[in-house]
């Protein structure tokens, strides 16, 4: 039995078709189509302000598109009940903040809320899932520690454990490693990988760093000015031309012989 409680047979598809999204009067995303590959890790990359976080918010039922439709298992996600969505799709927003004194265990318990109700309080099943989520995120020794006393990487693993406890086939992450140093970044990315590989989850993450995205994602979605400019496996997609288009830098690409993913070298700003 895997540590990951998500039932492999349970699948959920998430797709956006012809969506446009606005912030106030400003159009952030224009006519975008996206279908997320099931059971894979998808990374959305692009320069600041390209609309990647907005797209994620749209997919997570946080920000309704002004045109087009987002489908969860073929149903328009914005006409589903929030709790119904929360049983199929877990979300980790950027800069999630917990009140002082909250312990890891208490945080992870929140992941069970979509499965509870007036009459259905904490059950043995909840406890089993909770224990498994804490084991999966390697937090057994830290379970009773308050979050503010832990390192950034540990804290982020605790938030991920909450999402794991939600036992959803889909997991959406907004810059899960943004405030972390390199060691902690890898600690978090490796957990995300294992959620997909061993847990069978479909993961979508907005990632700032292109190299990490290549290293840890199966599928790359490159965005610029509210559009998808390239999509596919990292080795297919990432070219010096794309890097120049996205970030305005010149570089050379080499393939890392161990991970088989592209690495950028000789980076410098475009002269043109």
């Amino acid at each position: 039995m895997s540590e990951f409680e998500h039932d492999r047979a349970q699948r959920a598809t998430l797709e956006a078709s012809g969506i446009a999204m606005d912030y106030g009067h400003r159009r952030v995303i224009e006519r975008l189509d996206l279908r997320l590959p099931e059971g894979k890790v998808t990374a959305i990359v692009g320069p600041n302000g390209c609309g990647k976080s907005t797209l994620l918010a749209g997919l997570a039922r946080l920000h309704a598109p002004s045109a087009g439709v987002i489908l969860l298992d073929g149903e328009p996600i914005y006409s589903l009940a929030p709790r119904d969505v929360a049983r199929r799709l877990a979300l980790l927003p950027q800069e999630a903040n917990a009140p002082d004194g909250l312990t890891v265990l208490e945080l992870v318990q929140f992941g069970r809320q979509p499965h509870q109700g007036w009459l259905r309080q904490w059950s043995e099943e909840d406890q089993r899932v909770l224990d498994a989520a804490i084991r999966a995120a390697d937090l057994v020794e830290l379970a009773d520690r308050p979050l503010e006393s832990m390192s950034g990487g540990q804290r982020q693993r605790a938030w991920l454990a909450m999402a794991i406890a939600q036992t959803t086939p889909l997991l959406l992450l907004d810059e899960p490693t943004s405030a972390l140093d390199l060691g902690h970044q890898i600690e978090v990315f490796e957990l995300i990988r294992s959620l997909s590989e061993e847990g069978g989850k479909t993961v979508v993450m907005v990632v700032h760093d292109l190299v990490s995205a290549c290293r840890y994602a199966d599928h790359l979605v490159a965005m610029l000015d509210g559009r998808i400019v390239a999509e596919g496996t990292p080795t297919e997609v990432v070219t010096p031309e794309l890097v120049r288009e996205l970030y305005g830098i010149d570089c050379r690409l080499v393939i890392d012989p161990l991970s088989n993913s592209p690495i950028l070298t000789e980076i410098r700003r475009c002269r043109s």
């Binding site: 997570a60 946080l62 929030p82 799709l89 927003p93 929140f110 809320q113 509870q116």
Partner: peptide, 23 residues
């Protein structure tokens, strides 16, 4: 009695609470 659970989730932030199925 009804609000205690959603309010507890709201203490984690609006987006997290939404993600947990609250309004």
């Amino acid at each position: 009695a009804y609000l205690s659970r959603p309010l507890a989730a709201l203490a984690l932030g609006e987006r997290v609470a939404s993600g947990l199925g609250h309004r």
